[in-house]
Design a protein around this nucleic acid. Structure first.
Length: 516
DNA sequence: CTAGGGTTAG
């Protein structure tokens, strides 16, 4: 709503500014990655700990001999991704530093940060500031806004932002902007499940687009995602009607839609899915489009979901015979199938085979084994594999590896071991993440160790993780029941300091993670 | 992060 109200006047402002500063369109620059930086760690810690960062920052930076650089600012913003309020005040602080130039990336990071907590109007103000300070806006600036708007369900505002952003992007005509960037809008709408809206825009704007296979594939993907295979097929038909040749990606998207449409548990359903999938396979071949590794991986995944290890192995043989090399995805799917059917030995054999074929397992591959160990409550088996990974002969464990282990140990009441793993994880630098904290805290709550649970809850907030509502509620109920009112009040105070609430409006803050 | 497949968790 705020965006809509503010939009006209902001656009107007921009039109005036345009006469005075000419900026060139940057090439598509994405946001930087989180990189290790002790200085950025320190700065973000300082900011998170202090109530009023302005006072302490200057002297603290001097004390530690840190001078702010663009890189440091980017990294600090990345570390403040859960605390938009603090990020904003750090932004104002840096803005007032002489010699320091806030670049497009810094603005983009902050804009993303603000949009994440739905501060779209503040984000808009920043875009205006960028112009006033001659910091170039680029497509990323708007794409961040658009994606966050979509993920917050504000699709109309997103489309509007898209269709009017050409005003901000100099040296590109409106038509060019549509042609270059419409994929992003369509794709993002579909990825977040707003395929109806996507279809609507697509139909409305068709006239100015160069219709191609990619655009249709995005829409087909969208309909498949909302499990509407009929519509997916209809768009597939439209693609054919236009005389466009579908490629292997278009077919794979449709195939995947068919394969993961229904629950496979009643066996009859499984047979129908396989029949439908094979029909698409045949159609593909008739059109001269050869199924590739992905096509086979999609089928293998269905077998895995249906717990059909024999079929899975059989298909693997067939694809090899056809000269298609299974890759890490293919192998992991089959290994998962074998593991989840209790055939660990067979899975190990396949693992060896895969390695000898030159495909390197990832931690995700080993996690299939860990999951089965967890199901069997086989702590020794899990620890043996874990030991090998920690020794460094295999790949190193990921956060998920640690999390599976933690989940298992906590469930079995092996608290001591769980804490050892927790320390390993911290040392390795792979974690902890939101899930690790959630698991651990829930584990301690289960054991009624409220105080320890509370300590970790505080720690996760310090680190900038936003606890889930359930975690908060479990802890709250526990503390009240155990009559630990003092601990509760201390916790509540901390939450208030961080402006963290768990009211109903907060649920909308839980956004889907980026696609990588 | 201008189209597709697998692996994690509560």
């Amino acid at each position: 709503m705020l965006v809509r109200l503010g939009f006209r006047s902001l656009l107007f402002t921009k039109l005036h500014i345009r006469f005075f500063c000419s900026s060139q369109l940057h090439p598509m620059a994405s946001l930087p990655e989180l990189e290790p930086s002790n200085d950025a760690d320190l700065i973000s810690q300082l900011l998170l700990q202090h109530h009023n960062p302005f006072h302490s920052m200057e002297s603290s930076l001097q004390l530690h001999g840190i001078s702010l650089t663009p890189f440091l600012i980017h990294q600090t913003f990345l570390r403040l991704k859960h605390s938009s309020k603090i990020a904003l005040s750090f932004f104002h602080y840096s803005l007032n530093c002489p010699h320091l130039h806030l670049d497009t990336t810094a603005f983009n990071l902050l804009i993303d940060n603000l949009c994440k907590v739905r501060q779209f109007d503040v984000a808009w103000q920043l875009i205006i500031q960028m112009d006033q300070k001659s910091v170039k806006t680029n497509f990323t600036t708007f794409y961040l806004l658009i994606r966050r708007l979509i993920s917050a369900g504000l699709t109309r505002q997103a489309i509007r932002t898209f269709s009017e952003m050409h005003v901000f992007l100099d040296e590109q005509s409106e038509d060019q902007v549509w042609k270059d960037y419409f994929y992003y809008l369509l794709d993002t709408l579909c990825k977040y499940g707003y395929v109806k809206v996507a279809t609507e825009v697509f139909n409305k704007e068709k006239w100015r687009l160069e219709l191609n296979c990619k655009l249709y594939t995005i829409l087909i993907y969208g309909w498949c995602k909302v499990k509407n295979i009929e519509m997916a097929r209809r768009f597939f038909g439209e693609l054919l009607d236009k005389g466009i040749d579908p490629n292997v990606v278009s077919y794979n998207v449709l195939l995947n839609g068919i394969c993961r449409r229904a629950s496979l548990h009643p066996n009859g359903r499984f047979d129908k899915v396989i029949r439908d999938a094979e029909k698409v396979f045949d159609e593909m071949c008739e059109r001269g489009v050869e199924p590739d590794v992905t096509s086979y991986s999609i089928l293998l995944h269905v077998y895995t979901r249906a717990h059909k290890p024999e079929l899975s192995l059989e298909k693997l043989r067939i694809m090899r015979r056809k000269g298609i090399c299974p890759n890490i995805v293919t192998y992991t799917s089959v290994i998962k199938c074998l593991c989840s059917c209790g055939r660990i030995e067979d899975a190990e054999l396949l693992l060896e085979q895969m390695v000898s074929n030159g495909v390197t397992p990832t931690s995700a591959t080993y996690n299939c084994f860990f999951k089965e160990f967890k199901g069997r409550k086989d702590v020794d088996g899990a620890l043996r594999l874990y030991g090998k990974m920690m020794q460094g002969s295999l790949c190193s464990p990921s956060v998920s590896t640690f999390n599976i282990l933690l989940g298992m140990l906590l469930k079995l009441g092996r608290i001591g071991l769980a804490r050892d793993i927790w320390d390993d994880m911290k040392d390795s630098g792979a974690g902890p993440d939101l899930d690790s904290y959630t698991l651990l805290i829930h584990g301690f709550c289960e054991k009624q160790k409220w105080k320890t649970a509370c300590e970790f809850f505080m720690e996760m907030i310090e680190k900038g993780f936003l606890p889930q509502k359930v975690t908060f509620e479990t802890l709250y109920r526990g503390l009240i029941q155990a009559n630990m009112l003092r601990t509760w009040r201390r916790l509540k105070k901390r939450l208030d300091e961080e402006s963290i609430t768990f009211g109903s409006e907060f649920e909308t803050y839980h956004l889907k993670p980026y696609r990588r």
